[in-house]
């Protein structure tokens, strides 16, 4: 990568972020050497605080119950990598509805979701979002979420963040195989069953993921 060393982010060593391999390894528990990825701009490497923020946000979206929460399973880190790599359309050009958000735009016109989210939540919290009590954090994020889905017309950077937190969670082993059912080899098709309260959804029904 031909990065500018002066742009090296704090907290996350630039060399560690080359190709995002280390982050993926961290998020997914796979050997970094096994991962060959699109190389990313070092400016997309998160700070420690941004990682902590995404972990917390993930945990607010899918909290720990009898099964782990999304923050517990690394869905925050997954979302950071996935956003930088453009999953859920995250690298498409973005037109901010709030002109103040223009400062988060990259040269390619896409928005830096993580930086945007950090600033937006801190602003809503009147300070450090992470320092607020959990009930308040939940309320603040809930309000952000409600606003993002209130209008079809307005494009909110929150939607891809949430989508990738959910993807990160339900494709993790705890989310996919403990919270939901993971059935790699169903072996049969039962076409018509009563939907009883104990019937958990199949996490790997990919047709349902795409079209359901």
């Amino acid at each position: 990568m031909q990065g500018d060393r002066k742009a090296e982010p704090r907290g996350w060593q630039r060399r560690d972020f080359l190709g995002a391999a280390a982050l993926v390894a961290l998020a997914l528990g796979v050997p970094a050497a096994a991962v060959s990825l699109t190389r990313l701009d070092p400016a997309d490497a998160p700070t420690d605080r941004q990682r902590a923020l995404l972990r917390e946000v993930a945990q607010l979206v899918i909290p720990r119950t009898a099964t782990p929460g999304a923050g517990d399973v690394g869905a925050g880190d997954f979302a950071i990598v996935a956003l930088a790599h453009g999953l859920e359309g995250a690298r498409r050009p973005f037109t901010p509805s709030d002109p103040a958000d223009a400062r988060f735009l990259r040269n390619d016109g896409s928005i830096r979701h993580v930086a945007w989210l950090e600033k937006t939540l801190d602003t809503a919290a009147g300070g450090d979002f992470l320092a607020r009590p959990v009930a308040e954090r939940h309320a603040l994020l809930s309000a952000l979420d409600a606003a993002a889905f209130a209008s079809r017309a307005a494009q909110s950077p929150w939607r891809p963040v949430k989508a990738l937190i959910l993807a990160g969670y339900y494709t993790s082993e705890p989310g996919g195989a403990q919270e939901l059912r993971y059935e790699p080899v169903p072996g049969r098709f039962d076409p018509d069953l009563p939907l009883t309260p104990d019937f958990r959804a199949i996490s790997n029904d990919w047709t349902a993921v795409d079209f359901g």
């Binding site: 909290p63 994020l141 979420d145 993807a167 939901l180």
Partner: peptide
């Protein structure tokens, strides 16, 4: 299934419970 959560408002245990079932 869980893919629907991407398109709907809601966070927290309510969302988690909803996505638990078809």
């Amino acid at each position: 299934n869980w893919g629907a959560g991407k398109r709907e408002a809601g966070i927290g245990t309510d969302l988690k419970d909803r996505l638990r079932h078809p």
